[in-house]
Design a protein around this nucleic acid. Structure first.
Lengths: 230, 230
DNA sequence: CCGGATCCGAATCGATACTG
DNA sequence: CAGTATCGATTCGGATCCGG
């Protein structure tokens, strides 16, 4: 059908024609966390109209970004192709940029597990990361972030039920951090860990307070790189 | 007015709300080359409706990405704020990604001076770059790319008139390369410099052929980083 | 020419309802 | 679970027009 073209022979233009439609990048953001079913995507993107979701998935498949994989038991998942996974640096850069000017959330803004997972990946500072296990709660999203040998991995925890026999990562976390959206101010360095606790932005409900320092060093986004030439 | 919100508190979402509308990223791409007047932007984006251009510029100003600067003589230009300039890594990553799957151009696709300038910046490999001056022609766009001490700077040459007294960068270029859109295949390594000449993808009309080798080493985009885990 | 504003038909998006 | 179908609300695109 030859999508509405920008009429230019250029990499940026080509990219924007493939992934520039409304909602597309957010679908990709969630798929960067892992393969997802249609319903998972719908839940992770609460405001997306279902017809748009299915249209985007079709377009992204046609563009070679997303693949549709039937599950052996039943059902199916969508996953990124290698080409789609190559968008990770783009999403990370975009997230880093957006993180800087995010103000406070609107009353009806939500934090989803996938968006928080990608935010942690965005903020992850390999060089400053000491081995540790953090459990992070924001709203009703619960994550387990493991740093091992400079590698970050994030697992999503089911919030309501206590871990009956579920696949909770082995071992106790070094710290359990319960935060509100104001945790953003810690990540960008607007406030120190001490101030964060003082101002009730977050609480360390288990583990030593010192781990919050390493958390803040591990997950950090510079406020705005001073331009070399202004 | 509270732009149509995605309803999430997330960096990617925030970014996409600011710069995700149609044409916005292309306006930013062109402004990354330098300040531009309304008319310049319209020429560099031949298919943009004028109302969309003015709407986007207003939105980008309100978002703190673009600034409107009156010129002392008369007229005015739009330029990126420091915050807007911080989008350069995003555009570069996006351009790199898009460059990989760009097929051949549609018959009515154009190559603009600003898009080619940004494409060179995208492909620039600091580590492999030897000092040199290249003059590059693609379609009727003519550029002078100077590499000095690992720093790339690109100047746009006015194509039709011979340099009467214009501000042509001092000195002769080491090589003058006249290419078609197939130069993309050289940049992504689909063909070697020798093959490029053989297949009439481009011609070195002045300077030694050897400079084409260093050109290809200086401007290169890897076909697709092999994913660590497939 | 520069820097837009206005008008209008066409395409897209969003919300809800419905289906195999 | 995995989508279609429908329909009103927006947005986009193309053309024209206007004040300096």
């Amino acid at each position: 059908m030859a999508a509405r073209s920008y009429g230019q022979y250029c990499g940026v233009t080509t990219a924007v024609e493939l992934i520039g439609e409304r909602w597309a990048l957010l679908i990709i953001r969630d798929l960067l966390v892992g393969p997802r079913r249609y319903t998972d995507l719908k839940q992770g993107l609460p405001r997306i109209p279902t017809n748009i979701l299915s249209t985007r998935l079709k377009e992204l498949q046609q563009g070679g970004v997303v693949r549709r994989v039937p599950l052996h038991n039943c059902g199916l998942v969508y996953e990124l192709t290698p080409y789609g996974r190559a968008l990770e640096p783009v999403i990370l850069e975009l997230g880093r940029w957006g993180f800087q000017t995010m103000g406070d959330p609107s009353p009806d803004d939500v934090v989803t597990a996938d968006s928080l997972t990608m935010a942690l990946r965005t903020a992850f500072q390999t060089d400053a990361a000491a081995d540790a296990e953090y459990e992070l709660h924001v709203g009703d999203v619960a994550l387990r972030a493991s740093v091992r040998g400079g590698i970050l991995s994030v697992a999503q925890l089911a919030p309501p039920a206590p871990p009956v026999g579920g696949r909770v990562p082995a071992g106790e976390p070094d710290a359990v951090i319960v935060a509100g959206p104001g945790i953003r101010r810690l990540i960008v360095g607007e406030i120190t860990p001490a101030e964060a606790i003082e101002q009730d932005v977050l609480a360390v409900v288990r583990g030593e307070l010192a781990h919050l320092e390493s958390f803040a060093a591990t997950f950090h986004i510079a406020p705005l790189a001073a331009p070399l030439t202004v």
